[in-house]
């Protein structure tokens, strides 16, 4: 089901993924941006498979993919696997991580994990109106600086901040704004192991995936990425053979 949907996206479309915890108003944001009317219920897990829609901004078409809401990307559930696989191997042009402003600590966990996979990320602090109602003040400037990412505060329900979000998305896609994610530093022993594996992975797989992220997954014994890795390897081997034949 899922792969069929991905393949429906044309080669040259600009793809934006929407990731986020459950109940962050992700689907509401999706509806506001695409004009589609996906039903948004208030219970965890209702976007079971991704919805897809499109919008036009300054004459350019963007395809928006609403990923299932997850707490993490460690692939311990179907939703997590779908979301992770799309961000990592579906290679969207940008990923918008939607965070609940009223529950930032929990939500940042996911943002930090997405940042490990990809660089082209926009952090969207949604439900900022709820946060204000609860007297929570979020310092988006400081957050942006700490994460090394563009951060936009929105209240998707009433359209607040959406213009800014669209502008930032287009800038990231066009390369005018290059996020420099400040990723999580692990214990020295893990970092040492990652440093050791990274060049080997880069050598094997090329630039298609983030070698640091692959190294971390392999170190923690996550085998669910195996088919993808093999596929990338296969393509590389095939290309190498082709080059041999041509030479």
């Amino acid at each position: 089901m899922k792969h069929k949907e991905i393949s429906l996206i044309a080669e040259n479309d600009t793809i934006i993924a929407l990731a986020g915890n459950p109940n962050t108003g992700k689907s509401t944001l999706f509806n506001m941006l695409t004009g589609l009317r996906q039903h948004t219920g208030n219970w965890p897990g209702k976007t079971v498979f991704q919805a897809k829609g499109s919008f036009i901004y300054k004459g350019k078409k963007y395809v928006l993919v609403d990923l299932p809401g997850t707490y993490s990307l460690l692939a311990s559930s179907v939703e997590e696997k779908i979301a992770r696989d799309f961000i990592c191997f579906g290679r969207p042009d940008a990923t918008v991580v939607v965070l609940d402003a009223t529950c930032l600590e929990r939500n940042l966990n996911l943002a930090l994990q997405v940042m490990e996979i990809s660089e082209r990320i926009i952090v969207c602090i949604n439900l900022i109106d709820e946060a204000r109602r609860k007297h929570l003040d979020v310092d988006t400037g400081k957050l942006s600086e700490t994460l090394g990412m563009p951060v936009v505060a929105t209240a998707a329900r009433n359209g607040e901040g959406l213009a800014e979000l669209l502008k930032v998305i287009s800038e990231v896609v066009a390369g005018n704004c290059r996020p420099k994610p400040k990723t999580v530093r692990y214990s020295p022993e893990i970092e040492k192991a990652v440093a050791k594996l990274k060049p080997k992975i880069k050598n094997l797989l090329g630039d298609q995936v983030n070698p640091r992220w692959i190294a971390l997954r392999l170190l923690e014994g996550d085998t669910s990425i195996e088919p993808y890795i093999k596929k990338i390897m296969k393509n590389k081997v095939r290309k190498a053979k082709l080059r041999e034949v041509l030479a």
Binding site: Y71, S72, L74, S76, S77, E80, R106, N109
Partner: peptide
């Protein structure tokens, strides 16, 4: 195993 993973993923 899995239960540990899920609990930790929840924070």
């Amino acid at each position: 195993g899995m239960v540990r993973r899920r609990l930790m993923d929840l924070g």
